[in-house]
Design a binder for these strands. Sequence first.
DNA 1: AGCTTCTAGGCAATCGATTTCCTAACTCAC
DNA 2: GTGAGTTAGGAAATCGATTGCCTAGAAGCT
Lengths: 323, 323
Amino acid sequence: MAALAGVSTGTASKALNGRGALRPETRQRVQQAAEQLGFVANAAARSLQTGRTYTVGMITTDSIGRFSIPLLIGAEDALGAGQMSVFLCDARDDPIREQYYLRTLLSRKVDGIIVTGRRTQARAPIGVGLPVPVVYAFISSADPRDCSVVPDEIDGARRAVQHLLAVGRRRIAHVTGPEHHHSATVRARATAETLAAEGLQPAAPTLYGEWSEAWGRQAAGILLSTGADVDAVFCGSDQIARGLVEGMQAAGRSVPADVAVVGFDNWDVMVDGCRPALTSIDMDLEGIGRSAAELLLATINGNPVHGRQTRPCRLVPRASTAV
Amino acid sequence: MAALAGVSTGTASKALNGRGALRPETRQRVQQAAEQLGFVANAAARSLQTGRTYTVGMITTDSIGRFSIPLLIGAEDALGAGQMSVFLCDARDDPIREQYYLRTLLSRKVDGIIVTGRRTQARAPIGVGLPVPVVYAFISSADPRDCSVVPDEIDGARRAVQHLLAVGRRRIAHVTGPEHHHSATVRARATAETLAAEGLQPAAPTLYGEWSEAWGRQAAGILLSTGADVDAVFCGSDQIARGLVEGMQAAGRSVPADVAVVGFDNWDVMVDGCRPALTSIDMDLEGIGRSAAELLLATINGNPVHGRQTRPCRLVPRASTAV
DNA sequence: AGCTTCTAGGCAATCGATTTCCTAACTCAC
DNA sequence: GTGAGTTAGGAAATCGATTGCCTAGAAGCT
């Protein structure tokens, strides 16, 4: 390549990277030669010299799933603009595999690591004293000095309840996932507190179950059979909400006329498939992924950020709570 | 590291890689030293020397979605075992972005590239005369010499129809996605042919629409209003199937007693959320991903495979076609 | 014309591991 | 005891790009 342009490799390097003092004409000649030969610099050689790889690792601690993808897209988005690539590692909930991937990423001298997972609950740090910056996205690290970006689920629950209040409902119940699940309890507590702040009681005790449509249907039956006086239900997930809507309709209740329903996740296939379309809370996972990547970049560039960053949720109103 | 073990770097390299003639004792001493210092070889330096990066790129030509993930998981699975890592690139249906990613991957000297996408339709090769092997997964390349791994959708449609025949249905209709969509037409044709081979006519003309639940509901209405005599419907996707089931039920038809329904994709959230649970065709995307990765590895190791490989589908029977 | 100043671009060290060649030392046999 | 054969491990070249240093030649000044 350098030969074609009639210069030394050193000069060629300077030409392509805009370093050194070169005549514009020479620079152009080199660029043309590079173009002509389809020359692309060997990244390995470059990073060996510069110490930067322009690569980050993304470890999903549990399997790549519905939550990881938007995070991944968001991160890829923020990093791609900075010309960085992403190594994707799926640890499948296996600590051994996780450590193995960690070693691999370190051996590849990634510039940074993003750790994600399915649950928002805090997890043990993936490593201590690592030679590269780490940012946790969606999940958070148990070590408060680590940088984590998580959705503000309390904010989400509050928005859901306040929306229901805004459309005139007062007898609000909450149906959610398993009690041992962090998100379920956080959302349930926030729901109760928001109601309490308005001087209201829940229309029924929180119903804990599974994150499934089947549980939503079942929960509808429970609410109706206990004779609870309910005019709105805030559900811990869109799947539960959709099941609940079906359950209510099967029992002759109209949504939203008799019972307004709000879901959580704003999962397109659920909110659109549901009839009526489901009002839901969006955690903006893509934004979280983007945010995490940006914080990682900041840390790489020497402006480290510590602590847990929360990001607000967004309510997306649809027919299931229409006035 | 070499210093700690009291050997030269060359010897250390041999010790860790099992090359050269070393006293077992020396080898062990080096390994201990490496362990103690948490030494991991710099991948850049290694690949600079060996020419291998133990890295493959995966380009999803459209956005990372429901189809890409299982493919990705399968590929990661097959490659992870061989200690290789995956660069994920989301081209978002943008040819510019695609070429940009291709350049990046080439500059990173990946050992191979897997190209995937949302549609099974053949696409233009991502590049010609590339210095690295390329395998297409799920989508196929228009160049027959390229290696592609695709689901055998004809096989899938045939299995669906034969299953319906096996459970005693004879008046079978087909509802599917847009007519301009490759998968829709392929499946529709295979459906018609399978019926014809049994000496049967479709119970209604193929209904083309969208890949959505809404279309499924609408299609149920169309089938009923035209008075078609139908005892089974094979749908081009699980979403359509689920919508159709709801539509049928809303009109007082029972599934599967009056109408048996088979979907396509075996998408857990749809097949389980549907009541009754949906019989569906599984394309084994994970297997396709794994297969593609294995073929890529074979090609990297000097045993190139050319042409379009098809992989059979699998029928997963559930309540919607129970006898 | 002669000296200084500036500039374009070449030379060579460097990054970290691999690998080839080579030598010192040790073993063994005669 | 000496030469041949073997073995363990070191020295140095190598991969490809970057970059600090240096110099040849041009330009400017007196």
